[in-house]
Amino acid sequence: MKSSKSVSGLASLSSLVYSTEVGRTCPTCRQAKADCRCGRPVLPKGDGIVRVSRETKGRAGKGVTLVKGVPLDEPALIALGKELKAACGSGGTVKDGVIEVQGDHRERVIELLKKKGSWTVKQAGG
């Protein structure tokens, strides 16, 4: 039996999200995020509340502090993550608009975010 769709037809159904050569890509123009030609900054959508929580899921029992909902673009979010990690004296990362700080530093992070920005900061979870 012969397939009704060609290989090139199936390839058009998928969209490139990440490339090992250029990293994250823009879903609209399919260029690297740094070379995006859409011309608009990508800000996370949310309700204007920055939520700070602790999570251990998928980390072999090790806890991390998560900061979600910060209305900043990617470079500013990375800079804020670096500042929070330095203030807590621990490592971490910024992934998909979420700042992760290794360890349980919820109180310190909430205090720093309230001083830093004009955001409503809440502790999420237990």
Results as ranks from 00 to 15, higher is better:
63 G>F: 08
105 H>P: 03
8 S>C: 10
77 L>D: 01
89 G>A: 02
14 S>Y: 12
50 V>S: 01
113 L>R: 00
108 R>G: 05
108 R>T: 09
72 L>I: 04
59 R>A: 02
16 L>R: 02
75 P>S: 09
51 R>F: 05
103 G>S: 09
54 R>W: 09
121 V>E: 03
18 Y>A: 11
35 D>F: 05
67 V>G: 08
36 C>I: 06
91 G>K: 07
72 L>C: 07
111 E>I: 03
60 A>C: 08
38 C>P: 01
50 V>D: 05
68 K>W: 07
84 L>S: 02
107 E>F: 09
47 D>N: 10
50 V>L: 02
41 P>H: 07
68 K>E: 10
107 E>P: 08
15 S>H: 12
116 K>S: 08
61 G>Q: 02
60 A>P: 00
64 V>K: 05
105 H>S: 01
84 L>P: 00
18 Y>W: 15
122 K>M: 11
96 D>W: 14
120 T>N: 15
65 T>G: 06
28 T>G: 11
108 R>Y: 05
72 L>D: 04
34 A>R: 00
27 P>E: 06
39 G>Y: 04
85 K>F: 08
34 A>L: 11
106 R>I: 14
93 T>K: 15
48 G>H: 00
23 G>H: 04
105 H>F: 03
101 V>A: 04
29 C>D: 12
81 G>H: 01
68 K>S: 11
12 S>R: 09
22 V>D: 12
115 K>A: 15
23 G>A: 07
44 P>M: 08
55 E>I: 04
23 G>I: 04
11 A>S: 14
107 E>S: 13
66 L>H: 00
31 Q>E: 15
66 L>D: 01
47 D>F: 10
52 V>G: 03
106 R>S: 08
126 G>A: 13
83 E>F: 15
117 G>E: 05
1 M>W: 07
102 Q>G: 02
92 G>L: 13
113 L>Q: 05
48 G>W: 03
1 M>G: 15
88 C>T: 08
4 S>K: 06
72 L>F: 09
100 E>G: 07
120 T>A: 11
126 G>W: 07
64 V>H: 10
15 S>V: 14
1 M>E: 08
91 G>L: 10
119 W>V: 00
124 A>C: 02
58 G>A: 06
1 M>F: 11
55 E>L: 06
4 S>R: 09
30 R>N: 13
54 R>Q: 15
24 R>S: 08
123 Q>W: 11
122 K>L: 15
62 K>G: 06
49 I>Q: 01
46 G>I: 02
54 R>H: 10
122 K>I: 15
88 C>S: 10
98 V>M: 12
41 P>L: 15
120 T>I: 14
2 K>V: 14
25 T>S: 15
94 V>F: 06
60 A>G: 06
100 E>F: 13
124 A>T: 00
49 I>S: 03
47 D>A: 09
27 P>K: 03
1 M>N: 08
35 D>N: 13
28 T>C: 14
7 V>S: 12
77 L>M: 04
21 E>M: 12
115 K>W: 06
118 S>K: 06
121 V>D: 02
56 T>C: 12
44 P>T: 03
50 V>H: 00
86 A>G: 02
65 T>L: 04
45 K>L: 14
95 K>G: 05
18 Y>V: 14
14 S>P: 00
92 G>V: 09
66 L>A: 06
24 R>D: 09
108 R>Q: 08
38 C>G: 04
62 K>Q: 07
5 K>C: 13
32 A>D: 14
30 R>H: 13
15 S>F: 06
82 K>Y: 10
86 A>Y: 03
41 P>Y: 12
9 G>W: 07
